[in-house]
Simulated scan of single mutants.
Amino acid sequence: MKIVVIGGTGLIGTKLVGRLGDHGHEAVPAAPSTGVNTLTGEGVQEVLKGADVLVDVSNSPSFADEDVLEFFRTATGNLIEGAKDAGVGHYVALTVVGTHRHPEIGYFRGKVAQEDLIIASGLPYSLVHATQFMEFAAGIADTSTKDGKVHLPSAGTQPIAADDVAAAVGRTAASTPLDGRLEVAGPDVLGLDEWVRTVLTARRDPREVVTDEQATYFGAVLSHDTLLPEPGAQLGETGLTEWIARSR
């Protein structure tokens, strides 16, 4: 199959393109650097010609609330139009577990807008909802640092390795459309504070992680299950200990 990967030069996209190619598919990476700009529509029609599947693992270049919302609304609208014109038979999008639980998180609002547009498009689709990537622990620490200490709640998480996300998205892309969602998560259930503390310790980052139940996560106070998948989620193979050992 010809599978076009929007965001195909990023963290997940690069891994996904490689995996799909290894399984005999024609995987085409699409990004501004390859001449495809989903915000302006440049190159979208051309890259989707003859495509069987469109996979969107792209991300907003700015994480400001309004920028994220505008990105996902505009980019998804352009992709839907291009997919319909090209006769694409399966639209796959990578999104986030818990997007509907905290509308006060700007990024979640953007992803909900993306999901709603895809569902309403009439195209056969699959939405892959993933938990937080293990690779993002340091970034979460950076945004949660105050006076040299990292303040995070003990809300539950099941962080997943990027390799396992790419594998799940690849399997979904090569399968029959779900016309629904699939949740994927890592095998370990950890507190958000515990996860980040473990990664920082392994990297010899001297910052202390303080358990603070009132600390916000991108502006939201979390409940225990906000970031956790529902029962029956597909679990990745890579635990946090193994991922840390590999990343060294």
Rank of each mutant, 00 (worst) to 15 (best):
V4R: 06
V4W: 08
V5P: 00
G13E: 05
T14M: 03
L20E: 02
D22Q: 13
H25M: 09
E26A: 11
E26Y: 00
A30N: 03
A30D: 03
A30P: 03
P32T: 05
V36E: 02
T38A: 15
T38P: 09
T40F: 02
E42H: 02
G43I: 01
G43Y: 04
V44D: 03
E46N: 07
V47C: 00
K49A: 08
K49E: 06
A51Y: 04
L54R: 09
V55M: 03
V55N: 03
D56C: 04
S58K: 09
P61N: 09
E66G: 09
E66N: 14
T74V: 12
A75E: 06
T76L: 00
T76S: 14
G77W: 10
K84G: 00
G89H: 12
G89V: 00
H90D: 07
V92S: 06
V97W: 10
I105E: 07
G106N: 06
F108H: 15
F108I: 07
G110D: 01
G110I: 04
K111Q: 14
D116A: 03
D116K: 01
L117K: 07
L117V: 00
I118N: 10
I118M: 07
I118Y: 02
S121V: 02
L123W: 09
P124Q: 10
V128K: 00
A130S: 15
F133P: 07
M134S: 06
E135S: 12
A141H: 08
D142T: 15
S144E: 08
K146N: 13
K149D: 02
L152S: 11
T157L: 10
A161Q: 09
A167G: 01
A167Q: 14
V169D: 10
R181E: 11
L182W: 00
E183V: 09
P187Q: 02
D188F: 03
G191W: 07
G191K: 11
D193S: 15
E194R: 01
R197Q: 08
R204V: 08
V209L: 09
V209T: 12
E213S: 05
T216C: 10
L222M: 14
T226I: 08
T226M: 11
L227P: 08
L228V: 12
P229L: 04
A233S: 10
Q234E: 13
G236W: 15
E237F: 10
G239W: 05
A245Q: 06
A245G: 00
S247K: 10
R248H: 14
